[in-house]
Amino acid sequence: MTHRHDVQRDIITRTLEELIPRSVPARLTVKVTETFDAPGGHPRQNTWEGSVHGLAERIATALYGRRPETGSPLEQAEAAKQNRDLAGELGALMGGAAALQQQPWYPARPGDVVHIAYEAVHDLPGSGSTYLVQQNPDEPAFLALVAVAVSDTDGGVWATDGDPDPLFEMWMEAGGHRITVVRDGLTVHNGPASRGR
């Protein structure tokens, strides 16, 4: 079933792609630059860069609201695979990765607190786990995801000793709609709120 949000997003995506005639959509990126004078008269720039699809999703969400999540990126890819929809499968995987990377709080930082919540299903009660993102002292480019409170039976399945992107696997397998990220005492991502919980 196609949602109105998808149709509107697709129109926005095509419009952005047409800014460069005969372009290859998979190779397009969008860059927004703010130029200003810093103290002392030195010119400075702030930039945002991302995919055309990611920008189209942001615009469509701002205009029409976010539709409910239909599952994690891997669940969506698996559903497309079962329907023999290769484009849908690849789109779900690439879109899931892009959705994480387009988050204003991305990437994770040392000190972030990450909670993943699973809703109750049939006879199974809801569960969740809380993790702390820490710098890996042996490998500065890697972050550790340390379980600090676990109510699920897997005992902190998302914990890692070191990973350059410690939330990627969690985001792709469980979905951003199950994840809450707290940074410096402020909730910067509240996935469960997107489900109307």
Rank of each mutant, 00 (worst) to 15 (best):
F168D: 04
H42R: 15
D112G: 05
G126H: 08
D184N: 14
Q45L: 05
G175T: 01
T61S: 08
T160L: 10
D112L: 06
S72V: 02
V121W: 03
R109T: 12
T35W: 00
D165F: 08
V181K: 01
A62L: 10
A117T: 12
W105T: 07
L55C: 10
N136Q: 11
L55W: 07
R66V: 07
G128H: 12
G111P: 05
R67E: 01
R178V: 05
Q103T: 11
Y106H: 15
A77P: 00
A87F: 01
S129V: 00
G91K: 01
L55Y: 03
L186V: 14
R58D: 11
G156Q: 02
L132F: 02
E89Q: 13
E34C: 12
A38R: 15
F142C: 02
P107V: 05
V157Q: 14
A117R: 08
A120T: 07
V114G: 06
L90V: 13
T187N: 01
H3W: 07
A60V: 06
V121A: 09
I20S: 12
S151K: 13
R22E: 15
R4G: 14
E169P: 08
S72L: 00
Y106S: 14
A56S: 05
A26K: 10
S51C: 02
T13L: 04
K31E: 14
